[in-house]
Amino acid sequence: MWLEIDNASIAYSGNAVVHDVSLVLQQGQIGCLLGPSGCGKTTLLRAIAGFERLTAGRIAIGGRHVSGEGCFVPPEQRRVGMVFQDLALFPHLTIADNIGFGLRGLDADERHKRIARLMAMIGLEGREACYPHQLSGGQQQRVAVARAMAPRPDLLLLDEPFSSMDADLREKLAREVRDILREDGVTALLVTHDQFEAFAMADEIGVMHHGRLAQWDNGYNLYHEPADRFVADFIGQGAMIRGSVVDAHSADTVLGRIHGDAPAGCQPGCIVDVLVRPDDIVHDDASSHQAVILEKAFRGAEYLYTLGLENHEQVLCMVQSHHDHNVGERIGIRVEIDHLVMFPAQREAT
């Protein structure tokens, strides 16, 4: 276990910003803290770097206890690298000097070799003498990653590193950075509010909400087996429809009986909300279940339809775009849910 956080809490003058968070990251893994703004993810990251103190709990990096229980290692002695939101490259230093900044204590030859290797890794050979402002945003981004990696930190932290990039550049850059980290076997923790960035980079993703870690899992499980309503809502698209539990493997809804493993704690007969993802609804003209198209959104290869059911509940449905239906039309639908996700019913839930 490379990074270990046990029951960490951070509070400013009595207001809890991070509450009782525990997580573990293995060596060489890339983790991600995902959540809406103000959920405490950046504060937690800064606590790992040593810029914030814990009010409770402890943090260990590479088996070394760095925060909590009366122990506090300052950032300059933590051996963590950090890539900042606005990159924070040193504007008056060349790219090579930026990358080599943290390489004191190495002799000139080794230092030069390390810089050359990192420059090659980020694909900027020959640009050593440039200044940061002469590079594009994506190139600066990679320089910032290389600078943080140069002293071979035990842990690399990335604070919303792609937030200033164009949306379509973001995912590509996230994958490039992931490959660079993989190549060097770096253990890293990323903070973002963009789930696609998280899916593109991370092995393990923690969804944070109101300072708590709602779920720590891989992307597939977050989407298909969300631990609570917030995660279900935050990750991907979907709608909730009312249902009642029949037995441990099925539930009755307006779309018929849905099969799949019901989570523990749901007694037969109790009222639940069933999570229906757009890919769970299949367009099938032969089906006995009909739905009215309320809205449609063109997504290129697909249409995302918002469908109204008999009891005025709504679901989303992804249909190939050559099945072009008009708003108000009735279409036949069928449910194909592999992962039945349900939560005890809330009043006024839709």
């Binding site: 770097a49 040593g50 810029f51 300052p74 950032p75 300059e76 002695q77 933590r78 051996r79 963590v80 690298g81 950090m82 900042f84 924070a88 040193f90 900044f101 943290g102 004191r104 600078r147 943080a148 140069a150 002293p151 930190p153 932290l157």
Partner: peptide, 8 residues
Amino acid sequence: DALRTLGI
């Protein structure tokens, strides 16, 4: 902050 994380 960047200086500090670079160990300086």
